[in-house]
Amino acid sequence: MSEKLRSKEYFDQRATREMGKHLHTKTRSLAETLASACRILAMTGQEAGLAGQISARSERENAYWTLRFGLGFDEATADDFIEVDQDLNTLSGEGMANPATRFHLWVYKARPDVNAIIHTHAPWASTLAAARQKLVVLHMDMTPFYNDCAFLADWPGVPIADQEGVIISAAIGSKRSILLAHHGYLTAGSSLQEATYLSVYLERAARMQIRAQAFGPLIPVPDHLAQEAHDYLLKPSIVNATFDYWSRQADAAIGQGARSM
C-alpha cells in the first residue's frame, strides 16, 4: 500500500519551525552590520569605485547612516559610518556622505517598511541596465525578484538632487528592487541583511539571464511556482543565515589576505 503524500504546505511549515529553532542570527551593532554588508558586496565583485552606496534608516526622523564618502566597500570598518540628515549634514561621525545618496531619503519617506538601501553599478546588473532590459525570472535563484523587481527605463542623471529621488522612489513603488536603465540597480530591504541578500542575488540573476540568452528564448518560471519560491527564499531565517555565512566568508578572505602579507 502506497504511503499518503503530505502536502508541500506541511513541509514548508515544518521547515519554518525548525529554522526558527536552529538558525540564529549573529548579534551585531548597526555599524558592524553595515561593515559586514560592505565586505560582502566587495567580495562578490560589486564595487564600482566610489559609486556604490549603502545606507540604513536612523532612529532619528529624516536621517540615515551611510559610509563616509571617499571609501570603497572593501575598506569599510564599523568606524567609517556617519549619520546624516535630509540635507546631508553630518549628525554623527566624521566626514561627508556621498552626494548621490540623497535619493535614499526619498525612498525612506515613501516606504516605511524599508530600513536599508543598497545601490551599486555591479557588472552584470549594469549590463542589463545598459541594454535597457528588464529582469526575467528564469530560475529558482531568481525567484526572490518575481513581481518584486521594478524597472526604470529612462535615466534621470546623476542622482544628487531632489528630482531624481522623486523619480526613483515612484518607480520602485512597493517592490524591493529596481533595475535602473543606463545606470545600475537598487535594493530596498526591511533589514540590511535583506538588502544585501537581494543585492547579491540580483547580480547573479543578471549574469544568469545574460548567459541564458545565448541559448535561445528566455522561458520564465511558471507564475505560481515563482511566487511560492519567492516567499520561501525571502523568509527572514534564510536571509539572515545566508548573510551570516557570506559575512564569515568575507572575514575569512580578509584574514587570509592579512596572513599572506
Results as ranks from 00 to 15, higher is better:
Ser2Pro: 15
Lys8Met: 12
Tyr10Ala: 12
Ala15Arg: 13
Arg17Gly: 05
His22Pro: 06
Leu23Tyr: 14
Arg28Ile: 03
Glu32His: 05
Leu34Asp: 05
Ser36Cys: 08
Ser36Pro: 08
Cys38Tyr: 07
Gln46Asp: 00
Glu47Arg: 04
Gly49Ile: 04
Gly52Pro: 03
Ser55Gly: 11
Ala56Phe: 10
Asn62Trp: 13
Tyr64Pro: 10
Thr66Met: 11
Thr66Val: 13
Ala76Glu: 10
Ala76Leu: 11
Glu83Met: 15
Glu83Asn: 14
Leu88Glu: 06
Leu91Arg: 15
Gly93Pro: 13
Thr101Leu: 07
Tyr108Thr: 07
Lys109Thr: 15
Val114Thr: 07
Ile117Ser: 11
Ile118Gln: 10
His119Leu: 09
Trp124Gly: 00
Ser126His: 03
Thr127Leu: 02
Thr127Tyr: 00
Thr127Ile: 03
Gln133Gly: 00
Gln133Met: 02
Leu138Ser: 10
His139Glu: 08
Met140His: 12
Asp141Pro: 04
Asp141His: 10
Met142Ala: 05
Met142Arg: 07
Pro144Ser: 00
Asp148Lys: 02
Phe151Arg: 11
Ala153Ile: 13
Pro156Met: 09
Val158Met: 08
Val158Pro: 06
Gly165Ile: 14
Gly165Tyr: 14
Val166Asp: 14
Ile167Leu: 06
Ile168Met: 13
Ser169Pro: 11
Ala171Asp: 01
Ile172Lys: 10
Gly173Trp: 11
Ser174Phe: 05
Arg176Tyr: 05
Ile178Ser: 00
Leu180Lys: 00
His183Ser: 03
Gly184Pro: 06
Gly184Ile: 04
Ala195His: 14
Ser199Phe: 04
Ala205Arg: 12
Ala205Gly: 14
Ala206Leu: 00
Arg207His: 13
Arg211Ala: 13
Arg211Trp: 14
Ala212Arg: 03
Ala212Ile: 02
Ala212Gln: 05
Ala214Pro: 05
Gly216Cys: 06
Leu218Ile: 00
Pro220His: 09
Val221Lys: 10
His224Asp: 12
Ala226Glu: 10
Ala226Thr: 06
Glu228His: 08
Pro236Cys: 00
Ser237Glu: 06
Ile238Cys: 03
Val239Thr: 08
Phe243Arg: 13
Tyr245Arg: 08
Trp246Val: 01
Ala252Arg: 03
Ala253Glu: 02
Ala253Trp: 04
Gln256Ala: 01
Ala258Thr: 10
Ala258Gln: 09
Met261His: 03
